[in-house]
Amino acid sequence: MKKLGFLLCFAICSYSIQAQKSAEYQLGTWYMYNGSHKLSEKYSLKTMAHFRYFELASEFQQEIYRLGINYAFNPKTNLTLGVSYSTGDLAYDTSSIDLYESRFYEDLNLKSIWGKFNARHRFRLEQRFIHKNITVDQFQNWLRYDLNVSYPLSNNWSVYAFNEIFLNLNRSKTFAQNWTGAGFIYKLNKNIKLKTGYFQIKLPNTVLKRLQLGVILNTDFTKKTK
């Protein structure tokens, strides 16, 4: 009976330790850079680099780089065409196949004002060229919709909330992910903003928790310097 109790206790402890090593129990962190650089009255350059971890600063998950050219039809409507490249680790705390992706993407961005709230709708189409290890190559079409709402708290501080849904159009069950989160943005000066927040990634079988720590850089090359 003592042996049975010992084995049962050992099994429970082992399961508890293993569970705590699962990805859904970790608070991961995304370190982010996003930039917008105005080139002319209608055109601007969009840049991005994200470094994503399963934990605070360890257990690498993904790095992604994005470059796009943006055209503004008017102050409320603009279009971005771009490319991105990413590498990723598919599993937490264990060896797994490496993932490499090259993507083309097309964004339609719509801006609106709801009282004191600023709303942005982004519709994104992605063509993903996926390479796993050496032998597996896939092509997938994804559709994403992001709703981002912000509210100014002062001249320098604002609060934001967002929800983004991901659909994989090459699968019969198209739902792939849903991101929901909120946070704060601090305007450091006319060119730089700092961003911090928290969000959850809902996958078909699990939910991941993430912090966001970012820098937003906006420049305007149309202004003449004296």
Rank of each mutant, 00 (worst) to 15 (best):
M1R: 04
M1H: 12
K2G: 13
K3M: 09
G5K: 13
G5T: 03
L8I: 09
C9F: 10
F10I: 07
F10Y: 08
A11E: 04
I12H: 10
C13A: 08
S16G: 03
I17C: 08
A19F: 10
K21I: 03
S22W: 11
A23H: 11
L27G: 03
G28T: 07
T29P: 05
W30R: 12
G35Q: 06
G35N: 03
H37D: 14
H37P: 11
H37E: 14
H37K: 08
K38P: 02
K38H: 07
K38I: 14
L39R: 13
E41V: 08
K42Y: 15
K42E: 15
K42W: 10
Y43V: 01
Y43D: 01
Y43F: 15
Y43A: 00
S44M: 00
L45Q: 03
T47W: 04
M48S: 14
A49E: 04
A49N: 07
F51D: 05
F51M: 06
R52V: 05
R52L: 04
Y53S: 12
E55D: 15
L56P: 07
L56R: 15
L56I: 07
L56H: 11
A57G: 14
E59G: 00
E59Y: 06
Q61P: 04
Q61L: 03
E63P: 00
Y65K: 01
Y65T: 01
R66W: 04
L67F: 07
L67W: 07
A72R: 01
L79N: 03
L79V: 14
L81T: 00
V83L: 13
V83M: 11
S84D: 09
Y85H: 05
S86R: 07
G88S: 12
D89I: 12
Y92T: 10
Y92S: 05
T94P: 00
I97A: 15
L99M: 15
L99Y: 09
S102E: 12
F104R: 00
L108G: 08
S112V: 03
S112N: 04
G115F: 08
G115I: 15
G115A: 12
F117L: 09
F117Q: 02
R122C: 00
T135M: 06
T135A: 07
V136H: 06
D137P: 00
Q138I: 01
Q140L: 04
N141Y: 09
N141A: 09
W142Q: 02
W142T: 04
W142S: 01
L143T: 02
R144V: 03
D146P: 00
V149A: 13
S154F: 03
N155V: 06
N155A: 15
N156A: 08
W157M: 13
W157D: 07
V159I: 15
F162C: 09
N163T: 03
N163E: 12
E164Q: 10
L167H: 01
L167P: 01
N168M: 10
N170T: 06
R171V: 00
S172Q: 02
T174W: 02
F175P: 06
F175L: 13
T180M: 15
G181E: 05
Y186L: 03
K187W: 02
I192M: 12
L194S: 00
L194E: 08
T196M: 10
K202Q: 14
K202R: 10
L203N: 11
T206L: 09
Q212F: 02
L213G: 11
G214T: 02
V215N: 12
V215W: 11
V215D: 01
I216P: 00
N218V: 07
F221N: 06
T222I: 06
T222Q: 07
T225G: 05
K226Y: 04
